[in-house]
Design a binder for these strands. Structure first.
Lengths: 249, 249
DNA sequence: TAGTGGTCTAGACCACGAC
DNA sequence: TCGTGGTCTAGACCACTAA
């Protein structure tokens, strides 16, 4: 009941082509599992397996008690670096997210706490393993859909007593506060990997539990020679197009 | 037999934790499906489903007739932009790939042809839809493992009669030839998405047919105001860490 | 040859949606 | 109430590995 193969794979391949070619349009309701099984002369199990493969790849979605439907293709959010980190946006009172999605986003669950960061984050921040740093956890929703988890880590000696410790640091965001403190970020590095989501991420982003995928972007922000912030973002891979513009070296 | 849930999901979650925590080390052989089923008091189908979920997420791998094993974690290839596009590397006779993996890579199947490019590529190159351009298809292998497919599209008026039309354009690669022609790339844009692989990509990269994921990177290269190359790369997501360094705007 | 994964079928029960 | 997806079981056959 697991891997594809003759029957299940053939059906999945056929239906995937029908969707890709436009023969089946988005929103179209598919025949029931029983009907598809009969039509193709295979069992119910193999048929459901084929559909589950397509669901894992994002081509179809299912509603319990209702049926299978060709999935909607959402327009991906364009996330353009370094444009989105332009300090000029702060001067206009805009947040970084505004550059990605205009005013369609909403941050939920702002949660500020002192934590021991993951080892690679500690190393990036230049603190000893086990040192406590400030963390700011947020969840972003766009058009009512969860698209990103974000945890920002900052050294406590920079943030102690500043607005960064508030759940709403005010216009300009935490980079604005850093700038006021004389730690304006001057240089960035973003490290990106694609991977399967962890169970907590499946829950937090309301991802399907099989076949979903996330982009994990770790952004290091330096002010001069000091790394002043590490931001670990987990993006629903289907929701984003990540763009980097840069001159030839 | 498709989605997880009580039995199958619980077993998958438990084993995932055991692997993540290090209780099960990589290479360890798991008990057979029959044994696991008996131990947990569930059926063979549910047990296999649990294992197939973990395989889809890359935690375990299976060998037919042999058993399930905790999967090896390969070190990811660090692909650092814009460093990897530095013309100084060309001067040393190095290829872009050398910057990612040293001398561990090999390009196979260099295939040069005139093709009608995908619509978005045509638009980027500034040619009418349907116009024929030069395409160079390559497959990259690192340590004996396929990690990337790459298709480069270039306007034929630039490439006609040049070494770019050869399967081996010589030291410096096609960017070297472009530079000789007076079209040294001065500016880049990389657009990255994560998605499920197409069947041809599953075959070309020898990916597992369920749960695998690729990063599709579309790199536009401009020389002055003219876009001189569009390179569409499809990377095995598990094999790469993609890094971008840039100054604050 | 015996054990193992890979696939498929048939049948069952449940939860849920549409009517 | 009936149809639908979601899950599970039991059993079967095949292909392959290991001894």
């Amino acid at each position: 009941m697991t891997e594809p193969d003759p029957a299940a794979r053939r059906l999945a391949d056929k239906m995937r082509e029908d969707i890709q070619s436009g023969a089946l349009r988005e929103g179209t309701k598919l025949p029931s599992i029983a009907k598809l099984a009969e039509e193709h002369g295979i069992g119910r199990g193999a048929t459901e397996h084929a559909l589950s493969i397509l669901r894992g790849e994002g081509w179809v979605m299912s509603r319990r008690g209702s049926g299978f439907y060709v999935a909607k293709q959402f327009a991906r959010i364009r996330r353009v670096s370094p444009d989105r980190l332009d300090p000029k946006l702060r001067a206009q009172g805009k947040m970084i997210q505004d550059h990605d999605t205009g005013d369609r986003w909403r941050a939920v669950n702002p949660l500020v706490a002192d934590v021991v960061p993951p080892p690679d984050v500690a190393e990036a921040l230049g603190v000893e393993p086990g040192t406590v740093v400030l963390s700011r956890l947020r969840r972003f929703k766009v058009d009512g859909r969860f698209v990103q988890l974000s945890v920002s880590y900052l050294p406590t000696d920079l943030t102690r007593g500043t607005r960064i410790e508030h759940s709403s640091p005010g216009p300009g965001g935490i980079h604005g506060v850093l700038a006021e403190l004389g730690y304006e970020p001057t240089r960035y590095e973003e490290r990106l990997i694609g991977r399967a989501p962890r169970p907590t991420e499946v829950e937090g982003l309301e991802l399907r539990s099989v076949g979903a995928m996330v982009l994990e972007i770790t952004r290091l922000a330096w002010s001069g020679e000091r790394c002043v912030e590490v931001n670990r973002m987990v993006l629903d891979a289907e929701a984003y197009e990540v763009v980097y513009k840069f001159p030839a070296p």
